[in-house]
């Protein structure tokens, strides 16, 4: 039996009827057509489906939508303030060549958002450890690490 729940996603409230076995990833992609969040494995290993729930990174493929009533969900679509401006992490990913095929990118960026919230000035080792749940097959990660360093610098200097 479906349950009607209200999800708070990127500041908007969506009312959806879900079966209990419906994952957040399915609700985002199929019901709400917020397809920026990807699905790469379905087992929580690749991180392409990463979103923030109450500011923390989680795998949307292993999260039941029914459990998210009242929680604050942020997806890649909710990161940039508007279509003109980008979030500094997005800017850095673009400028530093951290994006190739782009399929891991939304998840990488959401993991970065979580990382920099927890640790605004991470060392390179901390950045790499912070990406433990995000696989990329194109870049070899180095330019992603560069982008995260760049974003951390911009974000912490602007908040100083």
């Amino acid at each position: 039996m479906k349950t009607v729940i209200t999800l708070n996603i990127n500041g908007d409230r969506y009312e959806v009827a879900v079966n209990p076995w419906r994952t957040l990833n399915e609700v985002l992609r199929e019901d709400l057509k917020l397809t920026g969040t990807k699905l790469g494995c379905g087992t929580g290993d690749c991180g392409a489906c990463t979103v923030l729930v109450d500011g923390k990174s989680v795998s949307s493929c292993l999260t039941l939508a029914i459990e998210l009533e009242g929680r604050e969900i942020t997806t890649i679509e909710g990161l940039a303030p508007n279509s003109e401006e980008l979030h500094p992490i997005q800017e850095s990913f673009i400028n530093k060549g951290a994006i190739q095929c782009g399929y891991c990118t939304p998840g990488m960026i959401m993991s970065t958002a979580h990382l920099l919230k927890q640790n605004p000035r991470p060392t390179e080792a901390e950045i790499r450890a912070g990406l433990s749940g995000n696989l990329c097959r194109c870049t070899g990660y180095n330019k992603i690490v560069d982008a995260i360093k760049d974003a951390a610098e911009k974000m912490s200097s602007s908040s100083d």
Binding site: G44, G47, S57, V58, S59, H114
Partner: peptide, 9 residues
């Protein structure tokens, strides 16, 4: 244990 996301969950 596992990854950042898994540890958050």
């Amino acid at each position: 244990t596992a990854t950042v996301q898994i540890r958050n969950m």
